[in-house]
Design a protein around this nucleic acid. Sequence first.
DNA 1: CCATGCCGATGACTTTTGTCACGGAGGGCA
DNA 2: TGCCCTCCGTGACAAAAGTCATCGGCATGG
Lengths: 234, 234
Amino acid sequence: MPEPTLTLGQTLAKVPIFSGLTESELSFLAQRAVTRNYSAGQSVFGEGEPCSGLYVVESGHVRIFKSSANGREQVLSIDGPGSSIAELPVFDGGSYPASVTAIDDATLLFVSKQDFQALCLAHPQVALKVLRVVGARLRRLVGIIEELSFTTVRHRLASFLLRHAQKEGKRSASGVEITLPTSNQELASHIGTVRELVSRNLSRLQAEGMLKIDGRTVTIFNLKALEAETDSPD
Amino acid sequence: MPEPTLTLGQTLAKVPIFSGLTESELSFLAQRAVTRNYSAGQSVFGEGEPCSGLYVVESGHVRIFKSSANGREQVLSIDGPGSSIAELPVFDGGSYPASVTAIDDATLLFVSKQDFQALCLAHPQVALKVLRVVGARLRRLVGIIEELSFTTVRHRLASFLLRHAQKEGKRSASGVEITLPTSNQELASHIGTVRELVSRNLSRLQAEGMLKIDGRTVTIFNLKALEAETDSPD
DNA sequence: CCATGCCGATGACTTTTGTCACGGAGGGCA
DNA sequence: TGCCCTCCGTGACAAAAGTCATCGGCATGG
């Protein structure tokens, strides 16, 4: 019979909030963590469900979002390997504040509330690490609020494109090439609007000569010009 | 010469994140905390400033908000005695994500980053408490995002009124009486819009017979009817 | 090969939001 | 009393957001 504990421990060591733990501490955790597999699109948990513990993404990606009564969705975060999710509701005793689904086939590790709290008490550094990643999460949420409250769909679309250009953009002959999310609907729920407005605003940016759309590939001709869109209110 | 350490310690003991500490631990903290006084309207710190430590509200109230290039503001939270603010940027090393000003004359305690981190390492329970209050903060932010992304100004106004009716509303002859913030401008920045829309929507709700406005006092005739406004998109 | 379904684009329209400008009420304060 | 100053309420617009319906492409699967 194979011993999975060690490989699990190695995986855990790569997770920011668990980095710096000794090998024995990692295996303590590994013995308690449960591996769960999800297929693309499958729900991990829904908003409002009682919180039983936290998850760590081992492989694949998850989508954290809120959904509204009339079918709209607002994506709060997309997280990949190494990210922990639902670290917070673990502590305040409430339910999950948002829903999470797997985007692609994904493997998550589940750590129960009790085990995690015990770990934090035994190893204060873990709690500090959690606070660090939670800080980043809070910044992102405040950023979303800022964009929703102050800017137009056009601005938010431009910001979105620029963010992705910086992260995964490839320089090509005429500019920077990026790949859009799977559908306009999905893009819309990232920037807090509806399909049609994404479509229209993309067309408009293209018509204005700032970029070229080819299927799911967008080539941005002039980063500066697009940045100017995100600057001032008009 | 009076010894202020003990009274400071008593104040600290009332702060949720420090509850449960022993007296000696409290005085350890009290020796390091700095009392700072602010007059109404004075800035505590501005968004983007490097984060040097966290604050605890001893008396008075503070306003945490983001401001935009064109002069609009979005309030993220109002906090009173016992609340801690900027707990998070202390840990992730970044700058303050939002600005804070005193609403009324206020006294805050300042605890430096270093002292607080040391405290968390020495007393893991403190870190867990911090995580708990931060959890609540995160929930509030997600709630703001939800409202901004999914609902109209009218909905948000109705929600705002209902929230305040539940908290500080007094039953009167014809319904529930609440007192609005100092100005419509302020109310607007709470619900993410501008002065004029607050004014118009309030008038409209009054015209529809759901409430009566008398200066800064609003009497809600029918809570159910107002709740219906916050329910479905239309 | 065709039927079906999903997705994108787009026109037409409504609603909501935001901006600008103005007038007026009320509160200090000289 | 008369003069600021701030804030509120409104009308008139302009711009943005959202809704509805339609058309066409493209892939999938019988």
